[in-house]
């Protein structure tokens, strides 16, 4: 277990290194960032000075070298726009994104798994066919459209819920969170539902497919022959065996939503990292983008690691080496 953890940590360093190179190279093709930070009427001398200040007058290789050596000293670079450390900018917004994503994932899982189990255990019932047809909507409807429709119905036509912002937050352990206030909940609901919809549909379909496979197995019949109740057979004997692909998808979706909730955050003006990313791309704020994408890679590696651990908890036949 310890050896496995060390191996994964080394893997992570490698992944982050490669990501930093790719992002650095990509950013050099997207135009000269200096024009994003200077006033339109700047003189040539002012432009040159800005370039020197930002270190953009040096070769790409030496820029990367400076970035890397600073990184090893814990300095992730400063935003061109805000003149603040890029990491601070991201970490400040991360709690907002993570709490929205966690609410969305919880919402998706709590609904998807029972429906998936039902549809998988009774594939021929009308209700199951209805669930599956509904899940197709969840997969195919684009998030931005769903978000706008939710705003239209719940904020405009019937002003029940606010359409933007985080609402009232309270600080817990240095993190500003909305989920502990009623106002915060009213703000988080619509974006979380928007974000949850596609994930809900995917988890539902994966759960159903797994359950259909598992319910044919002999051990399900054997459990029935023991006199176990239907619910116990479905959830204790069936679901646990169908859970491996569900956990895999759950992990991927979790990472995906944390990293790229951009569209939903933009629609609901949710002050999270996704909105920061899109703003930084508009402004050519390279340090923020680099750190953001490295952080994203880091989150994915961590989630994958956790998913591997969860596998071993679910299925004793799987061991980590």
């Amino acid at each position: 277990m310890l050896g496995y953890t060390i191996k994964r940590l080394l893997q992570m360093v490698l992944v982050l290194f490669v990501v930093s190179i790719i992002v650095f190279l990509m950013m050099s093709f997207t135009g000269d960032p200096v024009f994003m930070v200077i006033p339109i009427d700047s003189t040539q001398a002012e432009i040159e000075q800005a370039r020197r200040l930002l270190g953009l007058d040096q070769s790409l290789f030496s820029q990367y070298w400076i970035f890397l050596s600073n990184l090893l000293q814990g300095d992730f670079g400063r935003s061109y726009v805000f003149r603040q450390p890029a990491m601070d900018l991201i970490l400040e917004r991360l709690p907002a994104t993570i709490e929205m994503v966690l609410v969305a994932m919880a919402f998706a899982t709590v609904i998807a798994i029972p429906l998936g189990v039902y549809a998988g255990a009774n594939p021929n019932r009308t209700a199951s066919r209805g669930i599956m047809a509904g899940s197709l909507f969840g997969i195919s409807l684009p998030g931005f459209w769903v978000g706008m429709m939710l705003i239209y119905f719940f904020s405009v036509r019937h002003p029940l819920l606010p359409s933007s912002g985080r609402g009232e937050t309270i600080e817990i352990l240095g993190l500003r969170l909305s989920i502990f206030t009623a106002d915060g909940w009213s703000h988080i609901l619509l974006p979380a539902v928007t974000l949850a919809l596609a994930t809900l549909a995917i988890i539902l379909r994966i759960t159903r497919a797994g359950m259909m496979e598992v319910m044919r197995q002999d051990y399900i019949r054997f459990a029935r022959a023991k006199g176990a109740s239907r619910t116990h057979i479905l959830f204790a004997h069936g679901l646990k065996n169908a859970l491996i692909p569900v956990v895999t998808i759950f992990g991927l979706q979790l990472g995906d939503l944390i990293a790229f909730a951009t569209i939903t955050e933009t629609i609901f003006a949710w002050p999270g990292t996704g909105k920061l990313l899109i703003d930084s791309i508009y402004r050519g704020d390279r340090p923020v983008i680099v750190v953001y994408l490295m952080l994203t890679a880091f989150i994915f590696v961590v989630i994958n690691f956790l998913v591997d651990i969860v596998y071993t908890v679910i299925d004793p036949r799987i061991t980590v080496k």
């Binding site: 002999d218 051990y219 054997f222 022959a225 023991k226 646990k240 065996n241 679910i314 299925d315 036949r317």
Partner: peptide, 17 residues
């Protein structure tokens, strides 16, 4: 009434002791 199945490799649930 209890039942014993044909294939012992598949009649026990693999994820429980």
């Amino acid at each position: 009434i209890a039942m014993v199945f044909q294939d012992p490799m598949t009649s026990l649930n693999p994820v429980y002791t």
